[in-house]
Write a protein that binds this DNA or RNA. Sequence first.
RNA 1: GCAUGGGUGCCCGAGCGGCCAAAGGGGGAGGACUUAAGAUCCUCUGGUAUAGGCCUUCGAGGGUUCGAAUCCCUUCCCAUGCACCA
Length: 957
Amino acid sequence: MTNNDIEKKWQKKWADAKLFQSNPDEREKLFITVAYPYPSGAMHIGHGRTYTVPDVFARFKRMQQYNVLFPMGWHVTGAPVIGIADRIQRKDPWTMDLYERVHKVPKEELPKLEDPEYIVKYFSNEYHDVMSDMGYSIDWRREFRTIDPTYKKFITWQAKKLKSLGLIKQGEHPVKYCPNCENPVGDHDLLEGEGVGVNELTLVKFKVEDGLFIVPATFRPETIFAATNVWLNPEVHYIKVAVKSGACEGENWIISNEAYLNLSNQYDIEIIEDVDPKPLIGNYVENPLNGEPLPIFPASFVDPEYGSGTVFSVPAHAPADYIALRDLKENSELIKEYDIADEVAKAEPINVVTVKGYGEFPAKEVVERMEIENQNDPKVQDATDELYKAEHSKGYISDHIENYAGKRVAYIRDEIKGDMIEAKQADIMYDFAERPVVCRCGNKCVVKIMDDQWFVRYSDEEWTEKTRKLLAQENIIPEEIRPNFEYYIGWLEDWAYSRRVGLGTRVPWDDQWLIEPLSDSTLYMSYYAIAKYLKDMNPEDLNEAFFEKVFLNVDSDDIKVAPEIVEDIQNEFNYWYPLDWRLSAKDLVGNHLSFLMFTHAAIYPEEKWPKGTVVFGMGLLEGNKMSSSKGNVILLSDAIKEYSADVVRLFLMASAEPWQDFDWREKEVRGTQKRLEWFREFAQRVEDIKGSKLDLSNIEDIELTRTIDKWMINQLNAHIKAATEALEVFQTRQALQHALFLLKKDLDHYMYRVKELVDNKDPAVVYVLSTVLNNWIRLLAPFTPHTSEELWSKYGGEGFISSAEWPKYNEDLISEETERSESLVQNTVKDINEIKNMVGDNIEKVHIYISPEWKWDLYKIANDVGKPDIGQIMGRAIGQKIYDNKKEIANVAKKISREMTKTRYIGKIDEATILNDAKEFIENEVSSEVIIHTDDSYDPQNKARNAMPYKPAIFME
RNA sequence: GCAUGGGUGCCCGAGCGGCCAAAGGGGGAGGACUUAAGAUCCUCUGGUAUAGGCCUUCGAGGGUUCGAAUCCCUUCCCAUGCACCA
């Protein structure tokens, strides 16, 4: 039988025994969930880690005899699969290749992926199968997809509930939008411009004449104080538009024809006529902030696509403006053409921002330092980036600017913007941070303001406060990310609740919209508790009254489900809730995990609030970021075939703590595999050593006398303790360090120490090894359940190991004294060999001198004093008359003072017995005869006086 | 830029006031076993030292302390997130 076969065998046995089907009972419950996957591709080892952590924890808690519920569902709502299906339909080569080669979809299945619903069905089935192959202890009766009619009913209730609480409202919001498709577009729908942000710009109104404005857009409204002129590009097609409604109603603006596309999606504007820029050049506009007249100049760098296609010039602080002005001053032809000689001559940079490291005109400095040739030099962008960054982070408004002087640029910007909007001197517009942004249909995208969008009001103060309280009561693992949660909960603005495209549930009161997919995943852990009942019910019966009763115990005449069934369902919910642990990836802290907290805080009473959150790190593959789209992944199903589920689980759990990034390195996975094989062989070896059938449920108890045997049991107990404590807080790596690696190291050491006894079936050794194995199989069961089941059944364990009792440690069997005894032996061997190396090897006898009683007394005194204070130690030692040679006491006290910073005092240990116990071993290790002295009757070189507690003196001859 | 986390030996990574020249793995060197290879086990892997010692090291600089990889300040560098979406 291969390992894969063995694993399959146990998975079937677990399923047949319904081992992981959890129902309410008398035991203490534990409810753990992990963010359900969005199955748009095959499961890879990164996902493997995510779902193995809760399984390990669930199995651990189950062995501690908790009633554990670990369910799973499929988040299939959202837009990505729509795009994927579309690309498959178009036979987009990159997508086809990705799904055939990376996700390994069989050729005959591939065409079927044209249907988005088929995609999620296909991959959620794939996930289900791989999760089973991994041996996850999931209660599959509660499995669902988020487009199941019953689930949609649940979401409908949730939506209405939030709305009735006043937490959903309608509003406006800028989105990436394709005018051709007439739809908002997500990043995955773009051909170009993925990840490009939408920036908020200030549209500043420079008056040309009453009611007519040139409206340049800027990131830096504070620089308006230093404007010297306005730029128009003579080669650009400008138009005049009328604003038909809103705060700017009745105004006419001059913008570029290209800007119209974007701006018309944000303002209610209408084109009046074309505008020839040339006659405008040389005319004046009015600076809204200070009423200064500013001339209009020509510039070729003005991009008609960005903002409004016009620019106001700040030569002191904007490199492009500085160069454009310099170019213009040198271009007599242009000056003549537009007859602007006086104006150009007068135009000089004006300072507005003071920034450390720069003088009065930073733009001039940067341009000159970078040796920028002219306004079309690509280095202009670098110069701009540098200066914008510096002025934003370190700049202050200069002293001559009224009202704002001395304020930090970073803080004052929004204030200036707000003041100007209030005074109708400016307004807001949005534009992309980078271009181009192209929809998959091939058209350029714009920023559109959607004004009938629904929002969840996460900005609501009262709600935020309640959520903060929820957070404060929660366990967060790792604790370090709690500040992140605090930050996000405070920072979250209103969240767009509705979308136009994708799979999902309709907004109940406005069915042109779908509920945004992150918003249908904020309360669904409750659904797991009851999913097994709902599966076979008529969705039409699941009205709001039903959910109100089940979750909130609100009575109603409208409930259509039979009362006794409702009661069962309600009881089950009340049994499992609140959720004990929620697990999810790091990148969901700022949205999903926070939303979950918000929603629970809003809908449920405090006793139903979640109790713990665990956040995951990411996965690396041989040191590189894992990414399906780049093909840099290993599918979990392949890894299972190659190494077996237990090896994959073991590696994923051992290589990093859940919240750290793990790195899948083939070499180390092989190492893990060998380790597990070693463990299987070890079990067999114990039986071989025993020489008869090993029966783990019937280990003959015997009294241990040898130090080394006690030491091994001591180590076992210490490792059980450490592993247990680590697992309680999800430290899978730490737990495995003890439960596998360090325990193995100790066992290796033990076997080495007792190698002479192993052949004689020494009863103490057999007892120790059987006890170790008995505990060890159980210790590893959460991590390698299949291997543990196999060994457990093979060597006489009772029942399934999955429900066996978690090893208990005996605190009395863990003592520092025992630990120190063995290190005394080890250190002595080490010291002897070290000296031997230096002295040469014509050594026949090694004499070991043990520290006399009075030195132990002195050590104790030194320890009581607690500081290397020789005077005080001496005083007490003499007072207690521990020894009559004061000079010798002083010498030793000095040594102890130094030593005690390195070796902690744990009380006296019986060094004579310990060393005599290990005499044979030491002799073997140092290949000489060893004589252990408790006095200095034979001490030709006067070495015995070097003997110190925990460190015997050594003499060789 | 803002927020959070982090910089440790050849590499990955633990440690977070004194048992720290620093766990554990990987890699490397040597040894045992074996006809040999592999597997396994043992030892070593900062420098130096003919009696168990000494010296230097935990991004850089400064400080607190009898004592700092660990605490405080300054500084440099790296990772992640910053939203309409899984």
